[in-house]
Design a protein around this nucleic acid. Sequence first.
DNA 1: GCGAGATAGTTAAGTTGTCAAGCTATTTCC
DNA 2: GGAAATAGCTTGACAACTTAACTATCTCGC
Lengths: 188, 188
Amino acid sequence: MTRNEEMLTASRPALLGAAGDDAAFRRMLHDLLAFSARLEQVRARFAAFIGLTPPQYTILITIRHLQDGEGVGVRQVADHLALSPAFVTQETGRLVQAGVVDKRPSAEDRRRVILTVTEHGAELLRRLAPVQREINDQLFEPLTEQSFGVLQALAAELRESAEQAVRLSDYLIAEGAGAGTGSGQRSK
Amino acid sequence: MTRNEEMLTASRPALLGAAGDDAAFRRMLHDLLAFSARLEQVRARFAAFIGLTPPQYTILITIRHLQDGEGVGVRQVADHLALSPAFVTQETGRLVQAGVVDKRPSAEDRRRVILTVTEHGAELLRRLAPVQREINDQLFEPLTEQSFGVLQALAAELRESAEQAVRLSDYLIAEGAGAGTGSGQRSK
DNA sequence: GCGAGATAGTTAAGTTGTCAAGCTATTTCC
DNA sequence: GGAAATAGCTTGACAACTTAACTATCTCGC
């Protein structure tokens, strides 16, 4: 196996195998990809259960997650989910229509809007809980107390490093730079 | 804190906190959600770099991942990514057009089709590697050799348990069962 | 204290991702 | 040898999501 260093998709030693290869790393990426696709499927089922579309459900639980005490704004929700503010506006509109979210202008900053989950929204999520419990148990069935601890801490860290990574990729892969079929590259 | 057991979204002890609460578990779910949204953003940048759309890129690397020795079929790719075969057919068609994937009928089973990455496709991915390396290092910056080991093994297991979980959710959330807005809603 | 930018959100119009349904060709297996 | 299962393809139709252009408010440097 003439392993070519130039082809590695990661270089940190912690991510490479004994032979300096990235096979395990790649496999992990594909596993994570498949896993998150399944998570999304499950979320779609949850959404259906309470009569929402998948993005609506995702936005609803995000609002609840971020609303601590005071409410949360459109932009914060959009950032957290990596969605455009326009889309979040549109979908929260529907959530308000459905009576599961309340939207009111902020008192201090009148450009802003405060999103909170209504009692009705909370009630729907409460009804979902029993089903969720059963499915989540299955979803994370391989986790032990130990590995849950690791994963739980890691998830928080990875969220942040991934945010950085997106910024880095925007910098490295600027509009037009690329290895496209033939044409030369230009930086912005 | 009158923690109500009925509202928990997980019940396995390994997933609950000292107080029997699911706060950490929920936080983890939101972190994973945000993380995978960022992963998707990064994939979109990778795709752009080699002149493909995000789903095309994802399908391309999945074909490469699964093609070991012999090629891989449409259905296997669809299953791995939780996409419909119809969509995979359509997008692989475009990948063939773009010259990055080869599609030929299987010799043994003439219903089937064998997908492989062409030399040109491999070359594009090779050109992407240096960028990928830098971004992946940032993406997984918090990982140590230890935690990489844990995560790597976990990802493989979670992929399977999640597959089970999707089946379970299909069973539990059958067409029409639900906590919709009051009325028992009939779907078409 | 005042105009130039930045920031929050909305609206409308468009693009892209994705699927369901219906079809053909093959294989399986009773 | 035929019914049922399986692999893939085609077409239409939506749902998900974005970009661009706009309004309203806020923040500062000067």
